[in-house]
Computed example of a mutant assay.
Amino acid sequence: MDIHELKADMIEYSQSIGIDKIGIASPDVFTELKERLRAQQENGYQSGFEKGTVDERTQPQNLVPEAKSIISIALAYPSKLQDAPQSVKGDRRGLFCRASWGQDYHDVLRDRLNKLAEYLEEKYPGFVFRSMVDTGELSDRAVAERAGIGFTGKNTNLITEEFGSYVYLGEMITNIPFSPDDPVEDSCGDCNICVDACPTGALIQGGQLNAQKCIAFLTQTKGFLPDEYRGVIGNRLYGCDTCQTVCPKNKRKRNLIHEEFQPDPEKVKPKLKPLLSISNREFKETYGEMAGSWRGKKPIQRNAILALAHFKDDSANDDLVRLMKEDPRPVIRGTAAWALGKIGNPDAYDSIMLAKQKENDAEVIAEMEKGIKLLEKEPKQLS
């Protein structure tokens, strides 16, 4: 069998099933990545969502001993929300990041990789493979960079010439000895816009991220959001796009290509107050197909409360008082109490004080005290 011919045929087939870019990487050890990951661990910069050991994440043949090549694929996703609903006073809205628009990309890329595997199984006897998307051991970005899909920018995103950094990545380790493609030259140059624009300073320097400070990570946590980040989360419900939206490489990249990724404006920019009372069933039915739903409704609701505080939306006071008094989850009760103080409605003072008398959770009580202090900073409101 002519491997070069098979590679050309595979590339042509990949385009017919909706793969926007495809490249081949060698299965050699990712030596530079291994050093970077160890430094990340030593500095406490990892998110905790990573899968596998450093060796598993950087040595493909540990995962597939027969590995001869890695196929990297990329699918572009939209960067612009058409017909976006307006966030207005008394009816404020939150926002899901672009990577959570439309159908969950994990499902879409797995579908493409499965079709690609079926095609190769017919063409190559004894075909062995293992596919992964985002949640596997390998670094999708490192594989894609080695495969010539794009280069890693200072914002730590893979940047392609055609689609900017608005691409989903996946890969397939195979036993087919495809020839590797050439990497793309880094072209960030002296540009440092993304590093300077990061709201929390999570980009320590070009190409190095402290995930613990990244808003995209923070919006997915389930506990109380640290105080220092509550003022910068804004109305983000899931994820953060700042380091992408400011990138010159993403200018005029719309990527309205795949129907699966076309966003429903009411889902990706939803009203905040209805999120406070949404049931588990309603949440799953409405948001279950979105990547941003994977952590459940609790982080989304907490972030919605913080967004209402950001907007100082006193039309949400009754909803927040109800959550503070009745919600069984301490994080929601406490965050609601803090938000009441941040919004600053004078009626909130008595509500927090009364709720505090019945509260037994120490962390919730601490949040109530924070809310009270915020109200006391404006004594005229309490008269």
Rank of each mutant, 00 (worst) to 15 (best):
M1G: 14
D2S: 14
L6Q: 05
L6H: 03
L6T: 01
A8E: 13
D9F: 06
E12A: 15
S14K: 00
D20F: 05
D20E: 04
I24M: 03
L33F: 00
Q41S: 01
S47D: 01
F49W: 14
K51L: 08
T53H: 03
T53P: 04
R57H: 00
R57G: 00
Q61P: 01
N62K: 14
L63I: 15
A67D: 07
K68F: 11
I71S: 05
L75E: 06
A76W: 00
P78C: 01
S79G: 15
S79E: 03
L81F: 09
D83A: 13
P85I: 06
Q86H: 11
V88K: 14
K89V: 15
R92C: 12
R93L: 09
G94E: 07
D107V: 12
N114D: 15
A117E: 14
E121T: 14
E122D: 14
Y124D: 07
F129L: 07
F129D: 11
M132D: 15
D140L: 02
A144I: 02
A144G: 09
A144K: 00
I149S: 10
F151E: 10
F151D: 07
N155G: 13
N155F: 13
T156K: 06
N157Q: 14
N157M: 15
L158G: 06
T160N: 08
T160C: 07
T160S: 10
T160Y: 07
E161I: 09
Y166P: 08
G170E: 09
M172W: 08
I173W: 02
F178M: 04
D182C: 02
S187Y: 04
C188M: 05
G189C: 08
N192F: 12
T200K: 06
A202M: 05
I204R: 02
L209V: 11
Q212L: 08
F217I: 11
L218E: 05
Q220N: 15
F224N: 05
Y229H: 10
G234R: 12
D241G: 07
C243H: 02
C247W: 06
P248L: 09
N250A: 08
I257R: 06
F261I: 03
Q262F: 13
P263I: 10
K267T: 10
P274W: 10
P274G: 09
L276S: 04
N280H: 12
G292L: 03
K297R: 12
I300D: 02
N303K: 06
L306S: 01
K312R: 15
D313M: 07
A316F: 02
D318N: 11
V321M: 03
M324E: 02
K325Y: 07
E326D: 11
W338L: 12
L340C: 03
G344Q: 11
Y349V: 10
M353G: 00
L354Y: 06
E359I: 00
K373P: 04
K373T: 14
L374I: 11
L375Y: 10
E378Q: 14
L382N: 08
